[in-house]
Amino acid sequence: MLHLGRYRKFLAALVTLVVLVTLMSVTARERETVLLVEKAVIEALAPVQAWFGGLTVGIRGTVADLEAIRHLREENETLRVRADAYDTTVHRLKELEIENERLRTLLGFTQAVEYQYVVADVVSRNADNWFSRITINRGSSDGIAKNMPVVTSQGLVGRISEVSANISVVQLLTDRASGTGALVQASRDGGIASGQGSQSPLLSMMFFERTAEVAPEDAVVTSGFGEIFPPGLFVGRVVDISKDSYGLLKYARIKPGVDFGRLEEVLVITNATVGVDGP
């Protein structure tokens, strides 16, 4: 009964491989729902992953603290100078904010939405080296839904790609399957910023116009052209610019504002699409 012939084993293996290929091609399409078994595995592993991750972060933090003590005085001096500069900037921004509000009223624009955030801890990262995804400890029970934007104070992180009750998966900007509508803040030239996988910390932005005005260090923000990200979220800064071999397309490499290697806490914007102004 238990003795399986070589032929039957071969058939079983073949069927398994065919099922895997079929499953892969079916799930490759954008899915609205997460399989029950996926939810079960994610939910079951998340607490242990969080514990493991916390332990590693703790150890790394202690080592980093010891290292940091040596540079503390020098850093303190630099920060004091920078804080003075920020004070000036804050005053200037306050002035601009007041002016902006006045002009908006004059033009009859709707009030910009105050975003509502859900704070989440990063539980774990994807196991492979091809994609860039993280899991966070907030899910549908906290009001999280698919495609909600995820940010930190440094800028855009990505979007929610899968949700279960208490855990969500975030597709990072650097994921090779990710594409974000973006524009150069100064010139307003638009394009699509795409990830290049976990081994490259830079994004590649392809411009819609080959005459796009862009220079290194220019700030890049979300355009709001897609339906996922609202306009104006900081993406990163231009590193360098290039053209394709035929000179038809213009590209820029973008250094994201967020340090994806050191993500520990993120904010999920839960009301991004409600009443947001156009670009």
Partner: peptide
Amino acid sequence: FVAGLAAGLVQDLTFGQYIGLFALAKT
């Protein structure tokens, strides 16, 4: 074969949009 299938499936189910991708490769 069994080890590759099990390891790949667990990996796919924890993060995968493409379920079966790593299961196929590892198997």
